[in-house]
């Protein structure tokens, strides 16, 4: 329902336009679908590299956020919820991080996503960084959980752009399983 994003000729256009969302919930409170939706706040939108940096440079780094906060960076038109049409048949690749690493890993992931480094066509929906009490979680969401060659490619790129040691565990979870 929002107007298209204008990209002046001198800016570097991205392959996709994105929305950045923020959410925070009170620890201990059960997250129902309704309050998850209500807690999602749209921070901004961008369609060029310059517009991304203008927004990003004003934000608190993920590691400095309070516990139970999330940044959600999704392609425009895709809401960061399992129920969204683009996510329904999808899943997410999950990396659990010890405290203190989230900001750097998140930035590397975001730059790879915006720069189209995953090379999986339309498959990427977005990415989430979740700040929790004892650990932080970074995930990449894709459209088709059943497409194993794509999920393998996402996993390889994820490992490479975050410089993860080869023994790092990367869990894949379908949204369908999460909904149950």
């Amino acid at each position: 329902s929002l107007a298209p994003i204008d990209v002046p000729a001198w800016e570097h256009k991205l392959q996709y336009a994105y929305c950045l969302w923020f959410s925070r919930r009170s620890p201990g409170k059960q997250a129902s679908l309704q309050n998850y939706d209500q807690n999602l706040k749209l921070i901004g939108r961008f369609a060029s590299v310059e517009q991304f940096w203008a927004l990003y440079s004003h934000l608190v780094r993920p590691s400095d956020l309070q516990s139970h906060s999330d940044f959600h960076l999704f392609k425009i038109g895709i809401k960061p919820m399992w129920e969204d049409e683009a996510n329904q048949r999808g899943g997410k690749l999950i990396l659990r991080l010890r405290k203190g690493l989230a900001s750097r890993c998140w930035e590397n992931l975001v730059l790879a996503m915006l720069g189209e480094q995953f090379m999986v066509g339309e498959e990427i929906c977005g990415a989430v960084v979740s700040i929790r009490y004892q650990e932080d979680i970074i995930s990449v969401w894709n459209k088709t959980a059943s497409d194993s060659s794509t999920t393998a490619r996402i996993r390889d790129t994820f490992r490479r752009v975050l410089n993860l040691p080869p023994n790092t565990v990367l869990e894949y979870k379908t949204h369908n399983d999460s909904l149950k």
Binding site: E11, H12, K13, L14, Q15, V49, E50, Q51, F52, W53, A54, S57, N108, L111, A112, L114, G115, E116, Q117, V161
Partner: peptide
Amino acid sequence: GTRIVYERAFLMQLRNSPIAR
């Protein structure tokens, strides 16, 4: 059509462009 691909180093360079600040 062609996809718009950017390497990390190039994106980092644009971090300091006037509009991005």
